[in-house]
Design a binder for these strands. Structure first.
Lengths: 352, 352
DNA sequence: ACCTGTTTCGTTAACGTACACGAATATATT
DNA sequence: AATATATTCGTGTACGTTAACGAAACAGGT
């Protein structure tokens, strides 16, 4: 008579009220088969009445299942350390929920080599995961990959750049168009109307361009909407090494020296290097991302603004969203990151 | 022979290796007394070797203890809805960890009535909590309260404004000085050197002023450091109703019409109202906080910049930090919020 | 009526830890 | 040396859930 006497909560209470065993209740909760329609209905009604919420801790303990989440993102190259930040966020989330039976595993691909993406995707599918965090840099390959995930019933979250109609549980990242739009607005504080702007896209893989193009669209849209006349020159640089860039920039500056340069991604530090080398001081410079090399140039005044969209938080929230989803919680399906403006004055307080 | 056969992990494995029972291991882990120095040492060594991490879920399940956290913050007045945001963050955190045996309870005080703070503090101490989240608006009373918390061994986190030397587990909020400093920097984009600036403090309770004064310090420090000459007028408004403010502003504008007005808190919308009423369009305006009434004036151009420091995240992180701390995790002791600049263009994307 | 197969359900041992209870051993007291 | 008192330790039950196993009830076919 010492046992669980009169107390009873949760599954046991439901069982008692329904005059069945906890085994049966368990079956309807996890809708396994093997319970008649009648008793199933009866139990479900009681569950609703009691507003029963399963005890996650007990659940995790009993089913020694481990939730396995895969994260597939670009590797940190020596060309750009950008992906360090999302990775850090992913790791932070992982360590916070490791105690709750969650395992997060990383996979990396080379942004300059599509095949590495395809290979990693295959491995992930083969190993089998409960959830996926993906940075869909290669558009076509990602769509293919995600289709297969859907077949395997693997829910996924996209970060950094979005893909339409993929039935993802969430997109977490910037609104690219708006980001470019804001950049244009900021230029108002740097130059006067009818001055000359140079827009620079630096990226090797053409596939990554849709990312940059959306920013460019936003950038141009601002001037149109505000009826501001500016001359916008544009150059696409397909080689990411400094020498190629330097050559192209030099040419461009001789032809049409701009008053403002807007770099559509984190490579802005290379342009800053060019500025320093050629002692260019009267031209304003804006670009993206809170990277050490960029911050250096922000500090010494070469770069005027950096736009940043919380890469670390993208990783963190990405993992957490998958976890929450797997815990049956509902997750906001679009979580645009704020568009942060970083200046010489506030960079100290910016947390990636 | 069916039982836990050979497997064994955690506490049981330790017991086996030390040739003791799990009871004894349990005693040293939770350092209860009743275990000899010798065996205690032996067990601790094994724990280290194994890098044993207790299973939180099992722990929570077994000890049906519920972690109780109290949050004491200002109530949302009709004068300002600011504290809505931190409250929302607190609630979000609460709902995310409710399943893990955590209960968060709210207490509110009136910013215009010290006694309400004292009363709520007493209630909290009487009821007994495992952790406390506090917005220490009243300096002296807060210090007193926290001293008593220390006596009762209640760990606490401070948000929104800091108090020195309180042995808190964390401060989560703005760096006020830097916040004012940045505001001054932004003014560079709004006015030219040697123009006139008006700084406005609006607050009834003098105790709240140390908060505003730090911003003012930062604001002035910028101009000094950059050797920029500006005329800074300053007015303190102790009545928070619009009529009083309007009268004082009108006087000030007739005497020394400024080119820029900097309001050191969220009451900037009242000044914006004044601008509208008197059709003032050539004077720039900056202030604090992402509130509906402020956003309205940002949209129509009356307010040029809003500075905001993630009030919702302050609440969220505050609760989470206490929780992590109670879970034995180490928590960063100072978590300055980023200083966000909100403009007409990016406010859509700002998440409190 | 019996046997066979299927559906429906109850029982029970885990998951890893906490804690109460009592047994065993050591130390102190006479 | 015998008893009383601390100190140190082992055992067992419980936390709420999962999942394997098997018992009971029912169906269909002969």
């Amino acid at each position: 008579m010492k046992k669980q006497a009169e107390n009873s909560t949760g599954i046991r209470e439901i069982a008692k009220r329904a005059n069945v065993s906890i085994g049966t209740v368990d079956r309807v909760i996890n809708n396994r088969l093997g319970v008649s329609a009648k008793t199933k209905e009866k139990i479900q009604k009681i569950i609703e009445e009691l507003d029963y919420q399963p005890n996650i801790m007990a659940r995790m303990l009993a089913s020694k299942k481990v939730i396995k989440i895969a994260a597939l993102i670009p590797s940190v190259s020596n060309e750009t350390g950008y992906w360090n930040a999302p990775l850090k966020g992913i790791n932070q989330a992982a360590s916070e929920i490791r105690n709750f039976g969650v395992m997060v595993e990383h996979y990396f691909f080379d942004q300059n080599a599509k095949q590495t993406f395809i290979n990693q995707a295959d491995i992930i599918l083969k190993k089998g995961y409960d959830g996926l965090l993906l940075a869909p840099m290669f558009e076509k390959e990602s769509i293919n990959f995600l289709a297969r995930c859907r077949q395997h019933n693997i829910p996924f979250v996209l970060i950094n750049s979005d893909l339409a109609n993929q039935a993802n549980i969430a997109y977490i990242g910037p609104d690219l168009f708006q980001s470019g739009y804001l950049a244009a607005h900021l230029s108002k504080y740097l130059i006067s109307p009818s001055q000359r702007v140079l827009l620079v896209n630096i990226s090797r893989e053409i596939d990554l361009h849709h990312h940059l193009l959306k920013k460019e669209e936003g950038f141009r849209a601002y001037f149109e909407k505000e009826n501001i006349v500016v001359d916008i020159d544009k150059i696409d640089v397909n080689e990411t090494d400094y020498n190629s860039l330097q050559k192209i920039l030099k040419q461009q500056f001789e032809k049409n020296r701009p008053n403002l340069v807007f770099v559509t991604n984190s490579r802005v530090s290379s342009v800053a290097k060019f500025f320093n080398e050629y002692k260019i001081k009267d031209v304003k410079l804006m670009g993206y991302d809170f990277l050490e090399e960029n911050i250096t140039h922000l500090k010494n005044g070469t770069i005027d603004f950096l736009i940043c969209q919380k890469p670390q938080e993208q990783g963190y929230k990405g993992v957490m969203s998958i976890y929450q989803h797997l815990l049956q919680a509902t997750v906001e399906s679009v979580q645009y990151m704020p568009i942060d403006i970083i200046t010489k004055e506030n960079y100290i307080y910016y947390k990636n």
